[in-house]
């Protein structure tokens, strides 16, 4: 009990236990999305990389090959509709999420934009996150798998500089493999660094330009979609 600032009011000091997670609001929406995707058997990917690692280009070169799977795409960028326009030509529903400065996508943005691309029997939802290796990592979007992309031009120590995304990813893609011969690219070092952060992580090497490695990437996706469908709904 104490009197403060001569106001004559008596105040009581109190210790309050809180224990609430700063991400609770996002996590709640993400859990709701995850339950609804599970009930419908929709497999959801969250693609995360630095700007320019090749997320949009990879999608441009693989979306058409995913047929007969029914695929929709949400693409996040700080500004402009450019990436969505590039992807629309592939014949799948695409919605651009313009974050207007925010460096990551949040579950609420996904929930708000989902109706624009939702299909009655959707098999696969691909979310291209805002180009950034730090912030998107912390925001659950209700996805089944985070995919970390790193291109051959970015330096082998990327996984050590940005470990959290490689730690949380279910698969890593090394993109622009066609450029490796022209660079002092140390493949073994990159793999070793990825596996330092995440022992045993699946790493696939791909080139959207030459098509190298795309088969394995497509096979990985199809296997995941199948597995999700096989799980009884409502789980």
């Amino acid at each position: 009990m104490c009197e403060t600032e001569g106001t004559g009011h008596l105040h009581q000091h109190q210790h309050v236990a809180v224990h609430r997670h700063a991400m609770e609001a996002n996590d709640e929406i993400a859990s709701r999305l995850r339950r609804s995707f599970a009930a419908r058997g929709v497999f959801v990917l969250n693609l995360i990389s630095a700007p320019g690692s090749g997320k949009t280009t990879l999608l441009e070169h693989t979306l058409a090959q995913l047929a007969p799977l029914r695929v929709s795409v949400l693409v996040g960028d700080v500004e402009t509709e450019r990436d969505a326009e590039r992807l629309r030509s592939c014949g799948v529903p695409v919605s651009q999420i313009v974050t207007a400065g925010t460096c990551h996508l949040e579950a609420e943005m996904v929930a708000n934009h989902l109706p624009e691309v939702d299909q009655r029997e959707l098999d696969l939802l691909i979310v291209e996150n805002v180009g950034n290796l730090v912030c998107p990592t912390a925001y659950d979007l209700g996805e089944d798998a985070k995919v970390a992309l790193v291109s051959t031009t970015e330096g082998e120590d990327k996984p050590l500089k940005y470990p959290a995304i490689f730690h949380r990813a279910q698969v890593a893609l090394v993109t622009k493999s066609d450029l490796a011969p022209y660079l002092d690219f140390d493949r073994e070092a990159l793999f070793a660094n990825i596996h330092t952060v995440h022992p045993g992580l699946d790493v696939l090497e791909v080139s959207a330009k030459t098509g190298e490695g795309l088969d394995r990437w497509l096979a990985w996706i199809r296997a995941q979609v199948e597995a999700k469908r096989a799980v009884p709904s409502g789980v």
Binding site: H11, Q14, H15, V16, A17, V18, H19, A22
Partner: peptide, 9 residues
Amino acid sequence: LEVQDMEVL
């Protein structure tokens, strides 16, 4: 990232 506790009046 957790708000753990508070001292309040």
